[in-house]
Design a protein around this nucleic acid. Sequence first.
DNA 1: TGTTAACTTGACACTGTGTCAATTGACACG
DNA 2: CGTGTCAATTGACACAGTGTCAAGTTAACA
Lengths: 197, 197
Amino acid sequence: MSSENIETRTRILEATVRMLEEHGGRGVRMGDIAKESEISRQAVYLHFASRTELLVAATRYLDEVLDVDRRLAPSRAATSGVERLALYIECWGNYIPDIFGVAKALLLAQDTDEAAAAAWQDRMLAMREGCRAAIEALHADGTLTPEWSPKKATDALWTMLLVPNWEHLTIKCGWSTKAYVRYMKTLAQRTFVVDSK
Amino acid sequence: MSSENIETRTRILEATVRMLEEHGGRGVRMGDIAKESEISRQAVYLHFASRTELLVAATRYLDEVLDVDRRLAPSRAATSGVERLALYIECWGNYIPDIFGVAKALLLAQDTDEAAAAAWQDRMLAMREGCRAAIEALHADGTLTPEWSPKKATDALWTMLLVPNWEHLTIKCGWSTKAYVRYMKTLAQRTFVVDSK
DNA sequence: TGTTAACTTGACACTGTGTCAATTGACACG
DNA sequence: CGTGTCAATTGACACAGTGTCAAGTTAACA
């Protein structure tokens, strides 16, 4: 194990991410994370003031490791609205499985913790921005279905792509990530794009 | 107040529904419900073994009061798949606001309580059945888009119509219930129905 | 040798759920 | 009139998990 020399803070973050992924974001307590990090429960509080703060830090840590910006590049480079939409859904759909554990934990923490709700809201607004850009690109191309205003279309796409829907389709309905991406693309195209017979 | 003579059990259920609606299903404790029912906290446990059991009973009570079957009748009487789909979305979309408080509380209880998860799952399976019937009707008419198998289409429609999505669109995005119904119909028709130019 | 920072240990406060036991008051039955 | 029973009350308590606090340990560094 190379974990001996890593800074404690990082070791906690890694343990957190690992355990949350393992348990689908449920039932992971501060004590469990401490044990996994091989320190005392109180030592965790020396680095993170609260469970929520730790979860938020874990999210940021994961974003860094997974290099979100690189993943989003193809979508941003798209030359048409239709392409941009498809690539955005592809990127996001392949990203969710990687962050699901931490996302779920943060999602659950929302119920009791104001700060967790704010942190998640923040992330989701960033995601909405991607949806808005895709819809805006369609709109600019003149390929956005006339029934939808850009604002309403953005809201609808945003909602469709929310993490709990991914969870429902993959975990409850048994879809593969590949199927999720494929069918979400179909749905979005048929719904928002003109002429996609 | 006519509440003096009503049976305690019913008084508890009414208080529960009232408080949950008022508070959007969050932060309502057994003690609060007891106070609202004008009895002691322990007396609530004389009628319901646990918070979850009370929530489930409140759901059933509400279903009875709201007469779900009557509401669903128009959809069941539809003569085409397209009509059935539209009427189902209409019925469901107008139903959610009435049950939201209780639904949300049950949804939140899922995280910690196995039984709550099962109860909610049950309700959602009933809802899925409505989705399946609508999609099946399209399929029978030959108007289901060829990209979708009936099973996949059912899963997708089911997911779209989940309560948290309604919450997101109305509460977070500020849509009215009318807009929700209208745009969900649009989305479903464009996605699942052939020839809906 | 002394200081400092990181960490440990153990105790405890807090919240909300659920349990338990003793008690009260009302009503009905013989 | 007494007795049983039923619904409800009161108050104490167990339990989990988070977060706090204080005192003590360890190791590096100067």
